[in-house]
Design a protein around this nucleic acid. Sequence first.
DNA 1: TATAAATGACCAACAGTCGGTCATAAATGG
DNA 2: CCATTTATGACCGACTGTTGGTCATTTATA
Lengths: 198, 198
Amino acid sequence: MAIIVDKVQKKKDIALACKDLFVNNSLKDLTIAKIATNAGISKGSIYDYFQNKEEIVFELLRHMMLEHDEAKECKLKSVTTAKERVKIFAEFFYSDETKELREIYKDFISINLTAPNEHITSFQTECVNRYFNWMCNIIQEGIDKQEIIPKSIDIAKGLFALGEGMFISSSITNTIDDLQKELNQNIETIFSLIEVKK
Amino acid sequence: MAIIVDKVQKKKDIALACKDLFVNNSLKDLTIAKIATNAGISKGSIYDYFQNKEEIVFELLRHMMLEHDEAKECKLKSVTTAKERVKIFAEFFYSDETKELREIYKDFISINLTAPNEHITSFQTECVNRYFNWMCNIIQEGIDKQEIIPKSIDIAKGLFALGEGMFISSSITNTIDDLQKELNQNIETIFSLIEVKK
DNA sequence: TATAAATGACCAACAGTCGGTCATAAATGG
DNA sequence: CCATTTATGACCGACTGTTGGTCATTTATA
């Protein structure tokens, strides 16, 4: 009897329309009014689709991550060794292609640290868990192929956390001069320790 | 001609008076008015000492960290091996004694990720750099004592970042069941790789 | 015409400002 | 040495502008 909009699709449209806005502005400087204007709808309508500003960030992150994960999956297939794969994994934290995603990711971390939002984080929990598992699989494959020693599996999650920790540290304080260099050097060293000696 | 208050001391007093408030509330729920009431002064006076809410967090963090670092220094002296020292270092991320400090630390990370605040972060940069160096020294000492192999030094910063990354991940998403267990297991595994074989 | 979508005026809460008040230390003078 | 004046900085809270979020009303379409 009346138009029925696809709420799921519209949420996605609104979030993606604001991508540049979120990427180029600090979350604090962004107002609902600006976001609404940018998305070409009114302030009131924003609230028909999202409960607050934070939810828009989550929606945006969700879609950018899905896109990124597909690209990553492809790239991971293009190499064969566990070490190469781990390095590709670490690219998330410094490469140019993921610059925009990282900006949103920072907003996401920031939101969740200041104002934990139980019901929204489920997707992100899944997502990070998926990364942990992904890393575990890469390591396990390396073990199965006898590239690296069995106990490498014990530091699989740690490898991901190492990247995350360095990323946060270098974002917040300038305690790391060159994230890419530092990260890859750590990976090299760790692999020299876990590689099977022939 | 008039009373001159020790601004440095008063900043400290205000910040410390609000410790419980910051520890027990999410930063978002705290208003300047609440903070002022809690500190026993007026809203206007808050602005005589701080530019905004964020600065109070920084001030508070500064003092809690200094206190924590002294305690840590003591504790580090009580053990002898690099592995034990690294484990003590990692306690920051999960122990009961540092619970309050961690809450403020989370606020600090959150603030800096959403609204980088150039002129204030210098202390924190120093602080984190100090932690990095601290860890490097612990590792270097272990190398000098021939407990661990020379190239261990290449993952010293990584060891600290690993803790930070796991801490953030476990705070944000429940992707880590037991931070303490996981962290110590990673340290054990890494040390089993870098320990000098006799 | 019935109903969902979209709107923007509206409100309450908040951060941050500013003119005014007051206590006290210094200066003055008897 | 004490009484009085004066200068100053600490402190306050009313005020302003901005923002997040609501809701009665309007608009569009099937």
